[in-house]
């Protein structure tokens, strides 16, 4: 079976090329195929991997243009493998994920203080059960088209993480958490849903961003785009869907 891999190196000079590899039929997953290439054909091939079971978030790449975990993809004849988008490529399939992770810091994606309560209901638990399954593989970050126009956008996984904490019964400072995501945050999303399609864990950042928008409205924030289009004249007079509330 043949697959193609986009190679990239800076040594001795910057080069990039699509290389075809003949893979042992025994390799089932893309990660097994990459390991086969590295240990048997070309040890210079660079990629990240860890757990092999879709929880460590190391091995996300593009397969035929779609974000995919290498360990969970069964290879097919002619698959084209490339590094994730929106992050600088370090070498071959390895990208600088630090660029993406920095947005967790900017979004202040954590619980504000230590909670005293020990009791949470099953209903409380279910509210952010799926969001806390995030493995930080950066697939959603790669799929998001907003970065081509706004490189400061907090992005899908960081905003999902903010929802994971503000929706938690243990969070005591919802207001400041919400305030922090107004600029370059929830209102910059176009709700295109690419992040939902890309997520290997079944998380919908788009859905979480919508929930954060309605929570923002409840806290008295509004969509700056609408405020602007109305000349900014209706201060505080909008519902969360942007419709005038008078």
């Amino acid at each position: 079976m043949k697959i193609e891999i986009k190679r990239y190196t800076t040594e001795p000079e910057e080069r990039s090329a699509l290389i075809t590899y003949e893979i042992d039929e025994k390799a089932q997953t893309l990660l097994e195929a990459l390991n086969y290439i590295k240990t048997k054909l070309d040890p210079s091939l660079s990629f990240s991997s860890g757990c092999r079971s879709s929880v460590c978030g190391s091995c996300a790449v593009l397969v035929n243009g779609k974000e995919t975990l290498a360990c969970s993809h069964k290879i097919k004849e002619g698959d084209v493998i490339e590094p994730l988008k929106n992050m600088p490529i370090l070498r071959d399939l390895v990208v600088d994920s630090q660029v993406a992770y920095e947005f967790n810091k900017k979004a202040k994606a954590w619980q504000s203080s230590h909670a005293k309560t020990q009791t949470l209901t099953i209903e409380d638990e279910k509210r952010n059960e799926v969001q806390s399954d995030c493995i930080l593989c950066s697939s959603c970050f790669s799929a998001c088209p907003v970065y081509s126009v706004n490189g400061s956008f907090l992005g899908p996984f960081a905003l999902t993480r903010v929802w994971r904490y503000v929706s938690d019964a243990r969070e005591s400072e919802e207001q400041s958490k919400i305030e922090n995501i107004q600029t370059n945050g929830i209102w910059d999303c176009t709700l295109c849903n690419e992040c939902t399609i890309a997520c290997p864990q079944g998380i919908s950042s788009k859905g979480d961003i919508e929930k954060l928008r309605s929570k923002s409205a409840m806290h008295g924030f509004m969509d700056p785009n609408f405020a602007q289009s109305f000349g900014g004249g209706f201060s505080g007079g909008f519902g969360f869907d942007g419709s005038p509330a008078f």
């Binding site: 230590h114 909670a115 009791t119 209901t121 099953i122 409380d124 994971r164 938690d168």
Partner: peptide
């Protein structure tokens, strides 16, 4: 639990 780990819960909220 105090820093926000999402443990599974019982009917009694424990």
């Amino acid at each position: 639990n105090s820093i926000g780990v999402c443990f599974s819960r019982t009917e009694e909220s424990k």
